[in-house]
Design a protein around this nucleic acid. Structure first.
Length: 687
DNA sequence: AGATAAGTGCTTTTT
DNA sequence: GCACTTATCT
């Protein structure tokens, strides 16, 4: 999806920065070279500032290929580059922009051999990583079904945290992970086996995409030097959410010229569980002496009413940069606080309000419902479907981690990378009668081989195996090798490889498999057709697979729904809503235990992070903000007590800043014998 | 190896 | 109270 509108209306005159930016933004955008920290409050035009900064640098003769832009999502990168491109008359396609992981991927493709890999290496997603780590247990001397050893995902959690915070396993076992200390010897052993196994499979996990480039830099100062020389300017978005590893990468990239501009908001740091350390933003000036600090405190997004409430909430946090966000929008209505009797009424209330908003001319895609965890949205989802309100949900399961997508791409992966243990085993286990054990046997014979002619199989599945082998062999002959030189100029002539391969897999085998295994096989088949179309935009299969592994649901949804013109209400977790904005926002399930989430109430720090999350949720709203909570919740999740307490995040807010729509539990207080449903029957009254 | 039965544990956020 | 994991049997 190119940014058609803007790209075609590229302007030819120079930008009048003073006119187009406010003084705060202007100062940051036109900052002289040197380290700069931009503290940008919610809705303060952070994206605008970064976009204009790119344009400003290019207008001042910095070649685009010497600028590196690190963002939190691929979507944000695309958007910023598209906008920047529309501002200036030159192409900036040479600029490197993307997530840390995607930049790590590009670097690693180029210098794969220095890390002991082939440039065609596979990227293991979360499931693959867990799978491969599980396969390592035996080799590491851990009995296959030992009850008292942590599960692969727990071990992976430790390894990942170790990589992302750059702390040794030793250190973590002595501190936060002390409950695993008794397994110290085995864990260390496992770490070594796992590392070797990944290398042997010519595969990397998400963390390797960040840590291997750093290892290469350490071992090869000349590579570090050439990167540092290349990137004259480094721009980092969402700096508050960087972890030690990412901060380390930034420091490495910017180590020579020190022209790093870090943009972030400490109040919006919500990724500490992934090792993000929002102290990075505080310590930035110490790490970069001479840092100029800029503050963007004018909020263009929300009404003063919404902003006052958000500000009131965040002041309850001890650890923060005090800041004074000013709204410039004209006054609107106060945020509404709504107590529903139970979560199904909460859902009804939301759908009713959505209809009301639509009657007032608000488009569905200007509305979002936000919640703490995916599971909180189930009832609402059903209600929306029942009421036939079009909605889009970025579900918990990543689109590309669904079984059928992974099954089909396993063929491509093994075709591209003959050492990909995980893909091979996944593929072979699609054959009837083949489980983990048989897959292992086959792998022993097939590992690393270009041809599988010599692999001996039981007659039971000989024909199936033959067709798989033929399929993969023909794909290998068709597949183009990854471009070693990391496509500065992507060879367009090879695109379509992956699409053809997926087509063969589906036609010759997988369509049939789907009908036998899934009742929703049509849907899954359609997904694969979509995948085929999607794959055509990549220069080669290797590129396609790499991007696929780094793509989030948000980006997938974007691609999938690009064709459906129907505007949809967005249902999303607060995490996924980061950086987005809507005219009307509902924040639901504001109960003690659901928001803040029970699991995350262990320490004061965790509560503060939950509050930041609440702050992020509120500041997504432009005009209408609704805070909702049910007073009663049956079933799981209620931890035995079906009566829900209103979230402390609501209790601590000044009541006069809100419009209280329904009183909690009137019938429970004995005030009246009203039926729970009464409020809602005539609910238009109350709104 | 796969189906069925019993048992466990667990309800979060994402590249 | 449910989904996923593991044990046992065929």
């Amino acid at each position: 999806m190119k940014h058609r509108d803007q790209a075609h209306h590229r302007r030819t005159s120079r930008i009048d920065y003073e006119k187009e930016l406010n003084p705060e933004q202007h100062a940051a955008v036109t900052a002289p070279p040197g380290p700069a920290l931009v503290i940008a409050g919610a809705g303060s035009g952070k994206t605008r500032a970064l976009t204009y900064r790119v344009a400003y640098l290019v207008e001042n003769d910095v070649p685009p290929e010497r600028i590196l832009l690190l963002t939190f999502t691929n979507k944000a990168a695309k958007e910023m580059l598209g906008r920047a491109e529309s501002l200036i008359p030159v192409s900036i396609s040479g600029l490197w922009g993307g997530t840390f992981h995607s930049v790590g991927n590009r670097l690693l493709r180029r210098y794969a051999r220095e890390a002991g890999l082939q440039p065609d290496f596979t990227i293991l997603d979360a499931g693959d990583t867990k799978e491969l780590l599980g396969n390592c247990f035996q080799e590491a001397g851990i009995p296959p079904k030992s009850k008292d050893f942590p599960k692969p995902e727990v071990v992976q959690g430790l390894f990942s945290f170790s990589a992302n915070t750059r702390q040794t396993i030793e250190t973590l076992l002595a501190g936060q992970f002390s409950h695993l200390q008794q397994f110290s010897v085995n864990l260390h052993h496992l770490a070594a086996v796992f590392k070797a196994r990944k290398k042997r499979a010519n595969a990397v996990d998400y963390d390797d995409l960040l840590s291997l480039p750093l290892e290469i830099f350490n071992a090869h100062p000349e590579i570090l030097k050439s990167c540092q020389e290349r990137w004259l300017y480094v721009l980092v978005d969402e700096y508050q959410d960087t972890n030690a590893l990412q901060a380390g990468l930034v420091d490495a990239f910017a180590g020579l010229h020190k022209n790093v501009m870090a943009v972030g908001d400490d109040a919006q740091s919500i990724y500490s569980w992934r090792g993000a350390n929002f102290a990075n933003i505080f310590s930035f000036p110490e790490r970069y002496p001479g840092t100029q600090v800029f503050r963007l405190e004018t909020n263009y997004r929300s009404t003063p009413e919404i902003l006052s409430l958000a500000n009131a909430s965040i002041t309850n946090n001890e650890k923060q940069f005090p800041k004074k966000l000013r709204s410039v929008k004209r006054s609107g209505s106060r945020p509404k606080l709504v107590c529903a009797d139970d979560s199904s009424r909460q859902a009804q209330f939301i759908t009713e309000q959505i209809r009301e908003l639509q009657r007032d001319g608000v488009r569905p895609d200007q509305i979002a419902v936000l919640y703490r965890a995916h599971s909180h949205a189930l009832e609402l989802q059903m209600e929306m479907m029942r009421q036939e309100i079009p909605f889009q949900i970025t579900s918990g399961v990543q689109f590309f981690e669904q079984a059928h997508i992974k099954d089909a791409t396993a063929f491509l992966k093994i075709a591209i990378n003959p050492f990909d243990e995980v893909a091979f085993k996944r593929m072979t286990q699609l054959m009837p009668g083949v489980g983990p054990k048989a897959a292992e046997q086959l792998w022993k014979q097939a590992e690393g081989r270009e041809s599988w002619d010599a692999v001996a199989v039981k007659p039971k599945f000989a024909s199936e195996w033959q067709s798989f082998a033929d399929l993969v062999t023909s794909m290998r002959s068709r597949a183009t090798p990854a471009d070693d030189a990391v496509n500065e100029t992507a060879p367009e002539d090879f695109s379509g490889d992956a699409a053809e391969m997926i087509g063969s897999i589906v036609d010759e085998f997988y369509a049939n498999y789907l009908t036998l295994h899934y009742d929703n096989h049509e849907q899954r088949l359609e997904d694969l057709r979509q995948l085929q179309v999607f794959s055509k935009q990549f220069a080669n299969t290797s590129d396609f697979l790499g991007q696929l592994a780094l793509m989030t649901n948000m980006e997938a949804e974007q691609n999938r729904s690009a064709k459906q013109h129907q505007p949809r209400v967005r249902l999303s977790t607060v995490h996924q809503a980061k950086g987005l904005e809507w005219k009307a926002v509902f924040v639901m399930m504001l109960c003690e235990g659901t928001f803040p989430l029970g699991r995350c109430m262990g320490s004061a720090e965790q509560i503060e992070e939950e509050r930041r999350l609440f702050y992020v949720a509120m500041t997504r709203a432009e005009e209408n903000l609704y805070l909702l909570y049910p007073s009663f919740r049956a079933g799981r999740g209620s931890y035995g007590d079906p009566f829900q307490k209103k979230s402390r995040f609501i209790m601590e807010l000044p009541p006069d800043l809100m419009d209280v729509t329904a009183q909690p539990n009137q019938w429970e207080d004995g005030e009246s014998g009203e039926e729970p449903g009464k409020f809602f029957k005539g609910s238009r009254h109350w709104l």
